[in-house]
Design a protein around this nucleic acid. Sequence first.
DNA 1: ACTCGGATCCACT
DNA 2: GTGGATCCGAGTC
Length: 201
Amino acid sequence: MLNKDFYKKDTLNVAKELLGKNIVRNINGHKLVGRIVETEAYIGPFDKAAHSYNNRKTQRNEVMFKDAGHAYIYFIYGMYYCFNIVTEDEGKPCAVLIRAIEPIEGIDYMFKLRYKKELKEISKSQFKNLTNGPSKLCIALNLDKSLNGINLFSDTLYVEDAGYNDFDIVETTRINIDYAEEARFYPWRFYIKDNPWVSQK
DNA sequence: ACTCGGATCCACT
DNA sequence: GTGGATCCGAGTC
C-alpha cells in the first residue's frame, strides 16, 4: 500500500509515478484491481482548469485542501463521477485525476457493476470500454460520492506498487478543459505508451 | 473511423 | 439559470 509520503510531493511527479501502480478496491467481498495507465495533474492555485484555481474553496472541492492521500470524487455531467487523489501539503489544493485503468483482477465483478451483465454476455465494444475513461472506471470500481473524502490507507480503497515499471510515458495536454484558457496547453496529462486501455491517443 | 447531439442534475454564480 | 476534468448511440463517410 502506498503511504502518505508517496502522495505528499510535487503533483506532476505523483501523476507520473502513479502510472503502472495498481488501484485496489474491496467491495462486497470482491477484490477489484486495476493498473493505472492514464493520469492528469491539477495544480490548484495556478491552474485555470482546476476546481481550486486561485484557492477557491467550495462545498464540492473542499477535499482538495486536505492532506495528501485522500480521495476526491466529484459528480459531473448530471450522471457521472471522477476519481482524484489529493497530493502535496494540507492546504495546497492539488490532485491527480485517474483517467484510465487496465483491468487486472475481479474483472467479472467489474462487468456486473458497469453493465449489470455477466462477462459472457458482453460485446467486444463493451469489453474495451470497461475502464478506459475517468467515469467508466468509477462505475466499474463502484466509486461514488459516498467515498468522497476517505483516505487511501484502508482496505476499502488503496493503491499499491505491483512492480510494473517497463514502459514509456507520453506527456501531452489534458482532455476537455477548453474553458481553461492558457492552461489547456499545459502538458499535464500522462499515459503509458501503447497501452490499449488509455482513453484517447 | 469519425462527428454530433442528447442524457441528466447538482453545485455554483 | 447555467454548464460541466463524460459517455453513448445514431448518423455519416
